[in-house]
Design a protein around this nucleic acid. Structure first.
Lengths: 243, 243
DNA sequence: TTAAAAACATGACCTATGTCAAGTTTGACT
DNA sequence: AGTCAAACTTGACATAGGTCATGTTTTTAA
């Protein structure tokens, strides 16, 4: 796909807003544009990161998709829900690891090839640092996810997710309930029941928005990683530092 | 702790054998030694990666420990079992993430401070690439672990672990059964029962060593990521490519 | 070599969460 | 506005795997 001037401007703006391009000068980003490829996907489409299109780094320009693994029995695990502005780099996965993207909304992905990224890492220590930060964040988020799955029951998992949404997304649920259930590793039925229990504690969902009775109920489900986005984090009001 | 000449030699040999120092010249490694610190721990000791000693990168010179998270109820999750020659970099974790190391054997850790590592990343693109590879491996291994926990039952989890040990470690179990149970997210009782089911399929543990009836039984539990270490991987004998 | 402790195995029972089936609500498209 | 499909809820029931109690084997230490 050829890029018009307007597209180029848009892409430069988009890229320079990403933390992956923090401290990278505009001229330098501009010089990368010829290597930038674009691909559009429709809602519902499935795209497999196989040997031909895994060794890349993808940037979500517009849209939303889920990164999933499916086993022989057909059980699905959602590794991550990727939103506009987020990056995934299957080029850093094992050569033999199969993952698929299933698009939740119409989506436009931008991507660079592995060589382009590796060249940049070699030539620009700041970019290397940004890649390192991105991977470190993936590690962190996977460790937290593992913990949530392993040590929390359904109600706690849901509470944890709502607490994180409340901090990061102003209480607006970014995904549907059934997708959320799958992401949290439970059935929609269990999510429904968990929500019922939470509503007894004063935590409700009204029209995809989180509503708390006093506004503090979700604090019980917060942790230090998601809490660092909260405006009372670390203060005397924050239960995480008062026990 | 001061380092003798002999220690220095040992450490240089040790470091240059790590994939983290691949393609790094011996002189360069030598120049880093003044920044290298050493700490010894005894079996059973617990060490918390808190604010004072998290911003580092640790290299396991001798010994074995488990990286764990514990929740309020006291349930423990093993994130990783770290063996001699392996690296962990809590400096790349979130500022607020608490993890502990519990030493399974007497252990000697070497470490560099965050500044030392970051300086090296800045100055040496090859080292930056090695750090990126290390983090990418962490991401990969956490994704696989998540999949194992989420999509496999106890028997399959154990089978998967035995298959990976069989490929990577010549069939010798590197940890005790109760530690393994905890690592696989089940109770020792469940592991015992899972082992019983596997023995009906011709897979047994004799004196911490895996014994298979025909030698192919574990292939059923293999996947493409752990299989890439196997000597029949990808050939017509390999069930992963024959279905 | 033996005693004590730790690790492991086995059975009975319990519980969280999955499955299935039958509604009910919501939302998208004429 | 009305229709249909999808999303969600609720109840009855099933089951994998946890808990607890007891017995056996292995390891450690004197």
């Amino acid at each position: 796909m050829n890029l018009s001037n307007i597209d180029s401007k848009n892409h430069i703006n988009f890229l320079s807003g990403l933390s992956l391009f923090e401290n990278i000068q505009a001229v330098e980003i501009e010089s990368m544009l010829p290597q930038l490829k674009i691909k559009k996907y429709q809602k519902g489409e499935i795209f497999s990161f196989d040997i031909n299109n895994r060794p890349r780094l993808y940037l979500t320009f517009i849209g939303q998709f889920k990164l999933t693994k499916i086993n022989e029995r057909g059980d699905e695990m959602i590794l991550r829900v990727v939103n506009a502005g987020e990056v995934i780099s299957p080029m850093h996965f094992s050569h033999y690891y199969d993952v698929s993207a299933e698009f939740i909304k119409d989506t436009t992905l931008l991507y660079f090839s592995e060589e382009t990224i590796n060249k940049l890492v070699k030539e620009n220590p700041k970019f290397a640092k940004n890649i390192i930060n991105m991977l470190a964040e993936s590690v962190q988020s996977l460790m937290v996810t593992a913990e949530v799955w392993r040590l929390k029951n359904t109600k706690e998992r849901l509470g944890w997710f709502l607490a994180s949404v409340n901090n990061a997304n102003l209480g607006k649920l970014p995904i549907s309930k059934s997708l959320l259930a799958s992401y949290l590793g439970m059935t929609p039925e269990s999510l429904s029941r968990a929500l019922k229990k939470l509503s007894e504690e004063g935590i409700k969902l009204e029209n995809k928005t989180i509503v708390q009775k006093t506004g503090k109920e979700l604090c019980e489900y917060c942790d230090k990683v998601i809490g660092s986005d909260c405006n009372v984090f670390g203060s005397h009001e924050c239960p995480l530092f008062n026990s």
